Amino acid sequence: MFFTRFRINTARTRARALLESPQRLHAAVLQGFPDVPPARGGPRVLWRLDRASKTQVVLYVVSPQQPDYTHLVEQAGWPTLSPGWETRDYTPLLEKLAAGQRWEFRLTANPVHHVRTDRPRNDAHKTKATAHRTPRHQAAWLLQRQERCGFRVVARTGVEDTDNALESHELTVHNQRVLDFGKNDPPKNAEGPSQRRSVRVATVTFDGRLEVTDTDALRNVLTAGIGRAKAYGCGLMTLAPPREETG
């Protein structure tokens, strides 16, 4: 596994076009690999945009193969700088994980729940995925998944037990965004035109501190992602040592 950091040059027209469309940026990320691994059942290409400001935008990619982002440098980077991106082996961090360790984490995700859309028919309900809108419900969405994902969000010391995860845990929710963009679906038959449709994805970023409970499950999360909309910049969780331990 490999971890890549690419700073985007937001002054370039092509860079702004990529940032406006997760579909185009996803395609540009995948173009860095000669053979794209299957999206299901194991490690996959995950990516995330971190926006510190309008001019400080960094693309992070986790992938089973080492990428070549020469094309992305030409479109959205600084071509005179070499190589224009940083890639390092991700395996040492994955192998370092152990139960009981504490890490700071960041995750951009698409927290959704399913709601009924019509009356029961044949003892079944039709449902659709609907985004959680409030930070409280978004935080609860993450905590509902923590056990099977191999970690526990650290509880705040000195805080009484509460149903509000943001009050009782070392967790913040920020950077809520709604991504609206167009997507071309494959044609229904070999001779037909591609189908254009609108896509809307609600995303939010979680920052917090976790404790490792199941190393295999957490490794799977770090390499295969968590939640939906992974093709659109969601699902990539990254870890960093707790600040008091960085010296």
Rank of each mutant, 00 (worst) to 15 (best):
N189K: 13
T162P: 04
R40H: 13
P186L: 11
F105C: 00
M237R: 08
E170K: 05
D207Y: 11
T80D: 15
V115Q: 15
R136M: 12
F181V: 14
V199E: 02
P186R: 09
P34C: 10
P64F: 04
L93M: 10
S63V: 04
A240E: 07
V61R: 03
V45D: 00
A139V: 08
W85Q: 07
V154C: 06
G182H: 14
Q146T: 09
G77E: 02
T223I: 06
L30K: 01
L30I: 00
R148A: 07
C149G: 09
D50W: 11
H114K: 14
V178P: 04
T162Q: 04
D89G: 08
R16N: 03
W103L: 07
P92Q: 10
Q195K: 15
L30A: 02
R24T: 06
V199D: 00
S198A: 15
A15H: 14
Y232Q: 15
A11D: 10
F206T: 01
T87V: 13
V199H: 01
A11W: 10
A15M: 15
K54W: 06
A131Y: 04
V112R: 02
R209K: 14
R48I: 00
E147F: 06
G182V: 10
G84V: 06
P79V: 12
T80R: 14
R121V: 13
A129L: 05
I226E: 12
D123Y: 12
G208M: 00
F105M: 00
T70H: 14
D68F: 07
Q101R: 01
F105Q: 00
D89R: 09
D163T: 13
G158I: 03
A27W: 06
T205C: 09
G150K: 05
N110S: 12
H174R: 13
N9G: 09
T4K: 10
R106K: 04
G77A: 02
Q144G: 13
C149W: 12
C234K: 05
A131N: 08
T55S: 15
